[in-house]
Amino acid sequence: MKRRIAIIAGGDSSEIVVSLRSAEGIYSFIDRDVYNTYIVEMEGLRWEVKLPDGSMTPIDRNDFSFMENGEKKVFDFAYITIHGTPGENGLLQGYFEMLQIPYSSCGVLPSALTFNKFTCNQYLKGFGIRVAESLMLREGFEILDQEVINKVGLPCFIKPNLGGSSFGVTKVKTAEQIQPAIEKAFDEAPEVMIEAYMEGTEITCGCYKTANKEVVFPITEVVTENEFFDFDAKYNGQVDEITPARISDDLTERVKLLTSAVYDILGCSGIIRVDYIITEGNKINLLEVNTTPGMTVTSFIPQQVKAAGLDIKDVMADIIEEEFINQ
Rank of each mutant, 00 (worst) to 15 (best):
G126Y: 05
G126R: 12
F127A: 01
V131Q: 09
A132W: 00
E133F: 01
E133V: 06
L135H: 01
M136P: 00
R138I: 06
R138W: 02
E139N: 07
I143D: 04
L144I: 03
L144S: 15
L144N: 13
D145S: 14
D145E: 15
Q146L: 13
E147R: 11
K151P: 07
V152I: 15
G153M: 13
L154A: 11
L154R: 13
F157W: 05
F157Q: 02
F157R: 03
F157M: 08
F157N: 04
K159G: 05
S165E: 03
S165N: 04
S166F: 01
F167W: 07
G168L: 01
G168C: 03
G168P: 00
G168S: 06
T170D: 12
K171L: 12
K171W: 07
T174Q: 14
A175P: 04
A175T: 14
Q177M: 15
I178Y: 11
Q179L: 14
Q179P: 00
P180Q: 11
P180E: 12
I182E: 03
E183W: 04
E183T: 12
K184Q: 12
K184W: 01
P190W: 04
P190F: 03
E191M: 12
E191W: 03
E191Q: 12
V192K: 01
I194V: 11
I194G: 00
E195L: 10
A196C: 06
A196V: 07
E199H: 13
G200P: 06
T201F: 02
T201A: 01
E202H: 08
E202P: 01
E202A: 08
I203D: 02
I203P: 00
T204F: 13
T204R: 01
G206T: 10
C207R: 10
Y208S: 07
Y208Q: 09
T210H: 08
T210P: 10
A211N: 13
N212A: 14
K213T: 08
K213W: 07
V216S: 02
F217V: 05
P218D: 09
I219T: 10
T220Q: 13
T220G: 06
E221V: 07
E221S: 05
V223S: 07
N226R: 15
N226Y: 06
N226K: 15
F228G: 08
F228H: 11
F229T: 03
D230Y: 07
D230K: 07
D232W: 03
A233E: 09
A233P: 11
A233K: 06
Y235S: 04
Y235E: 05
Y235W: 13
N236Q: 14
G237I: 08
Q238G: 07
E241R: 06
